[in-house]
């Protein structure tokens, strides 16, 4: 007994172009007068390249394909077909079929530069939130200890663990190892990594950061803002801070110190919790960069070095024309559009 269901009355507003009858998707499940057919043929994935599959959609029933991420096999009774479990695009690697979701949580990989926040201090390690399904661990032995990089960890360090990182501290680190169930272990054994200060923290979707050669950018800003460092964590956590000159240079100026003393001072500064004096101009430019990155992510444009630079330029031009960056999102859209236009030109 097929039951006919009358679709709801059409709903049209000026802002929304939602109209199911003229919907240009890959495939329509119902005929044009909006009646659903109960005995329709099994649904098939849109054959179009770049089409979107949605959960429950049969991707293929060809047995030559292997099932990858984002798919599952239908129960054996109805033939082994591969069914999507995510909304996203199909990616094929040789004979492996997988679905890339449109939006997903960060999955750590070795070598990723991540920005994280300390959640918990344990006896010999910290637990760090890196926006992944599990929090990462940072071992006391995988950080730079004050008094030289090559110093051995002692019991005194264990007792003073909070002087290095305490709950709520932000840090930039690299994923060192992954356990077989996906738990990440971080390290900060380089002067590039360590505690973050002098700036603002922001988050975007993990998939919106493009993987690059270097995730630490230094952007020269105008309006007397000086240089600004941007730490684009692959996990979608971003820190934008006033540029700090490499510690070794700053300490040798002024006073001459022995090389061991220098290391000690440098290391102590690494774990300082006190912000430097940041001029209003620098603060303004940091805020502008944060707005640009947020607008790029909101506009669906992947964030990378080029786009941050172009976006910043575009934002400055808007600013020079006397346009205030409003909270309505319109300014953000204009800046993103301008940045994209710039990229097409170059």
């Amino acid at each position: 007994m097929p039951i006919q269901i009358i679709s709801p009355a059409p709903f049209v507003t000026a802002a929304d172009d939602y109209d199911e009858e003229h919907e240009g998707g890959v495939r329509l499940d119902f005929d044009n007068d909006g009646d659903v057919l109960m005995d329709e043929a099994p649904r098939r994935a849109g054959g179009q390249a770049g089409g979107i599959v949605t959960p429950g959609e049969v991707v293929t029933d060809d047995p030559q394909w292997m099932r990858g991420h984002g798919t599952y096999l239908s129960p054996a009774t109805s033939g082994q077909s591969i069914i999507s479990s995510l909304a996203g695009t199909i990616s094929k690697t040789n004979k492996l079929l997988s679905i890339r979701a449109l939006k997903f949580r960060y999955i750590p990989e070795i070598g990723d530069l991540v920005v994280g926040r300390i959640l918990e201090v344990q006896t010999k390690r910290w637990r760090v939130d890196i926006a992944a399904p599990h929090s990462a661990t940072l071992l006391l032995s995988s950080i730079n200890l004050p008094g030289g990089i090559l110093r051995k960890r002692t019991s005194t360090d264990e007792l003073q663990i909070r002087t290095f990182f305490s709950e709520g501290d932000l840090l930039v680190a690299e994923v060192q190892t992954l356990s077989n169930d996906g738990l990440a272990s971080l390290h900060t054994r380089s002067l590039k990594y360590g505690k973050l200060r002098n700036g603002v923290f922001m988050t975007i979707d993990a998939g919106m950061v493009r993987r690059m050669k270097s995730h630490v950018l230094t952007l020269p800003t105008s309006n007397g803002g000086g240089d600004v460092d941007i730490y684009l964590g692959v996990n979608g956590y971003i820190y934008i801070a006033k540029h700090t000159t490499p510690l070794t240079e700053s300490t040798t100026e002024g006073k001459s110190v022995s090389i061991t003393r220098l290391e000690e001072e440098a290391s102590e500064a690494i774990y300082s919790n006190v912000n430097e004096e940041i001029s209003p101009e620098t603060r303004g430019e940091i805020a502008r960069i944060a707005c640009v990155i947020a607008a790029l992510a909101k506009g669906g444009v992947k964030v990378d070095e080029e786009m941050v630079e172009l976006g910043y330029e575009a934002a400055l031009e808007e600013f020079l024309q006397g346009v205030e960056w409003g909270g309505d999102g319109e300014a953000g859209k204009r800046v993103v559009a301008a940045a994209l236009a710039k990229r097409r030109l170059s």
Binding site: Y18, E20, G25, I52, T54, G300, V301
Partner: peptide, 17 residues
């Protein structure tokens, strides 16, 4: 069907961006 068409519309928009 209604939800699916919205998911597709949203996805298409996102991919285009």
């Amino acid at each position: 069907g209604i939800m699916d068409s919205e998911v597709r519309r949203h996805g298409k928009e996102k991919l285009e961006a």
